[in-house]
Nucleic acid binder design. Structure first.
Lengths: 252, 252
DNA sequence: CTTGACTCTTACGTAACGTCATGGTTTATG
DNA sequence: CATAAACCATGACGTTACGTAAGAGTCAAG
């Protein structure tokens, strides 16, 4: 038999918590003395540990109550449903982060750059729209040249190139956790630069432009976000670091 | 001038919300009539929209109050700090999901399989511990053979092999969003099977064992989780699908 | 003047306790 | 055995951002 204080200390919770759990019928003492004192049995330790386990998973006490006391309750389904809501919450937070990023960029004025849609673009109406801006930024002949270059590929080759582009982006997404300066990230940017040959002469200027481009174009943005919600911001940082690095090497 | 109802309808919030915002001094009416009615000016629309924007980012009203009313407040830093807490929350939820997964697996009895630590293992004390279990499962000579094989590589080659392994895992992590049955995932598992040649004869049985192994071994588990929190569960599903597919092909 | 739509303030409910406040009980000590 | 320290109890308020009445006053239209 344990008093509140003893059980609380054993389980590492507060006395108030035990009072509350008694109040809502989640964990009731085995007996109550004539003085009103709560006395808990050994079983309470086990139950409390279960409760604390589920609580750590962010489950609501009402649901824990069912899990613990209702034997017919389908625990697996409950856990799976809980897992689902955790996933949804993560999704929600990730879009929030994305909005915050966009807001920060908007405020710091790191915007107003080029437009370009690569592995899905270079075709149809959108292309013309991008072309105009690109011509202004990079000069008419370079753009026309790259368009000719692209059109010279077979449809199959074009598809293959697009896939390669996609692989690079997903590869970058896989290393988001490592930070933009990670060697593997820089290596992928190297690959990207090579990849850009399929479209035009891959200057660092163009690369930097692409890195900043997503912010102005919702479609471009959405493309990267679809791969990974953090990719746009990550890309920008990684490219900036990459280009700076190469440019400083050149100066030496 | 707008009454509460009018402003509420304009902004898509409840009257109670406006009352509350007035109460905490977040959005006060431009004037209050002798009858006690609140009258809001056009500026309130603009302010309210700002408030609602920050609210959508899950910021607390007290902080929004500072942002809106305290001109000296450092908005950028606040947003960055907020971004940080969102990130932390995501991290926390991801580890929760992982725990939930482990619990579900534990309950459904999808456990008790092999142990093996690949691109970080095959060295030192841990190896012996794994070896014993492996011998029981896969037979003594096969294990000894694989150990001999591994030791025959140069240190540099071993490093390279480990890196290749890592690349495959990060590749898999990049496709988590596509689901375990995605062609690219299956292709990566193909590569994995090839990769396993560096260690031993890569049977499907071994592959399936690896897929299930993470659950029993915290270290193995941690290795994959470090790459991507969802990778362990994802791997297991993907491998099962992959192995099933190949085995059914064989039968035909 | 009535009716309906609108306004106000007051206040409880939400989740899971933390934090007093007040008063009774047990245990240790002199 | 008296007293103090430690422990027990219940009650109630505070936390966040409102939702949801309740009760009462106000305004415009018919």
């Amino acid at each position: 038999m344990y008093t509140v204080k003893q059980l609380a200390k054993l389980a590492g919770v507060s006395v108030r918590t035990l009072h509350y759990y008694d109040e809502i019928g989640l964990l009731t003492p085995a007996s109550v003395g004539a003085n009103g004192y709560r006395y808990y049995s050994d079983e309470a330790i086990y139950l409390l540990q279960q409760i604390l386990f589920y609580r750590r998973l962010d489950m609501e006490l009402s649901q824990i109550k069912q899990i613990i006391h209702d034997r017919r309750f389908d625990l697996i389904s409950a856990l799976q449903a809980h897992r689902g809501s955790l996933q949804e919450e993560i999704q929600r937070l990730q879009t929030l982060i994305h909005t915050v990023d966009a807001t920060i960029m908007d405020l710091t004025g790191e915007i107003k750059m080029s437009k370009k849609k690569l592995f899905e673009g270079f075709s149809e109406e959108k292309q013309k729209q991008y072309e105009q801006e690109a011509m202004r930024r990079w000069g008419e002949d370079r753009v026309k040249q790259s368009t000719r270059l692209w059109n010279s590929y077979s449809a199959q080759k074009q598809e293959q190139i697009k896939q390669e582009g996609g692989a690079i982006y997903t590869g970058l997404a896989a290393h988001i956790g490592d930070g933009p300066q990670h060697p593997q990230v820089q290596a992928l940017l190297d690959r990207w630069q090579q990849h850009l040959r399929y479209f035009y002469e891959p200057s660092l200027e163009v690369l930097r432009g692409l890195g900043n481009a997503y912010n102005e174009d919702p479609d471009f943005n959405a493309t990267f976000t679809a791969i990974h919600p953090d990719l746009p911001a990550f890309l920008q940082k990684a490219i900036n670091f990459y280009v700076d690095q190469i440019e400083s090497k050149r100066q030496n």
